[in-house]
Amino acid sequence: MIILKVKNKFKNYVWKKNRKKVNIENQKRLRNKDVTIISTNCTGGILSHDLGLQFKSPTINMFFRAEDFMRFCENLKYYMSIEKLVECHDEEIIEDRSYPVAYLGDLTLFLVHYNSIEEAQKKWDERKRRINWENIVIINTDREGMTEELKDRFEKLPYRKVMFVNSPPPLYKKYPSCFYIKGYEKENSVGIITNPIGWKGKRPIDQFDYVSFLNGKDCV
């Protein structure tokens, strides 16, 4: 047990050192630094952090269910006009979660990395004011109840976009915005694609050239 802990600690240390090198190289390649990343979960925030970007999106440190995220993206200006997050007290939604859950109009926000609704509201308002409406990209995954109908709707969104999925082509030729992340074929969806893997400072999402994507190049 002690040997395993030491090994994991050393592995984590090496991974972080190598990750810094990856981040530095990616930061050098990135040209589009005034971008708003609207993300269904923490992926957008982690990429922004790695790339040294200011958080110009309120969708940081939280996640949506698939249907709610699609409605959010289809009506961004409407949902951004709603002033207050309302705390959720529905036990069927909260379940055993230790973090706050809030409503934004008819949407449910799972505020995973916030201690309170008040903290989330402050950050939501602060980052909402920074949105660059002329430079929005959307990052989605096939998690949280994604369906074929929702994928069809995703393809119609008028933004640069990508959805990470666990199934290889040609299954997703119908959905040109989908990108296959290897390693989750036996699962129902992709996993946490920002989790560390191996020793080289990589994450599953590094299979996708997100720097080129943010710079405006088609990568899917």
Results as ranks from 00 to 15, higher is better:
116 S>L: 00
207 Q>M: 08
180 Y>G: 12
18 N>C: 09
53 L>S: 13
210 Y>N: 05
88 C>N: 15
159 Y>R: 11
204 P>D: 03
184 Y>E: 04
106 D>G: 03
166 N>E: 11
28 K>W: 07
180 Y>P: 11
37 I>F: 09
201 G>P: 07
177 S>V: 06
155 E>M: 11
186 K>F: 08
187 E>I: 00
30 L>A: 08
187 E>C: 02
105 G>L: 09
52 G>N: 10
197 I>D: 01
109 L>V: 06
132 N>R: 13
173 K>Y: 14
108 T>M: 01
88 C>I: 12
146 M>F: 00
100 P>C: 00
132 N>E: 13
189 S>H: 14
25 E>Q: 12
59 T>K: 00
13 Y>P: 00
93 I>M: 02
105 G>W: 10
199 W>G: 02
126 E>Q: 14
184 Y>G: 07
11 K>Y: 12
135 N>F: 11
121 Q>F: 05
174 K>N: 12
11 K>H: 11
192 I>R: 09
23 N>S: 12
219 C>M: 15
146 M>Q: 14
110 F>R: 01
182 K>S: 06
138 I>A: 09
212 S>Q: 08
88 C>Q: 10
77 K>F: 03
189 S>N: 07
187 E>H: 04
13 Y>H: 14
131 I>G: 05
61 N>S: 14
111 L>H: 07
92 E>T: 14
157 L>P: 08
157 L>N: 08
139 I>Q: 02
186 K>G: 10
39 S>P: 13
13 Y>E: 11
128 K>M: 01
69 F>K: 06
49 H>F: 15
34 D>Y: 04
106 D>W: 07
166 N>M: 03
201 G>W: 07
118 E>F: 00
188 N>Q: 15
193 I>F: 03
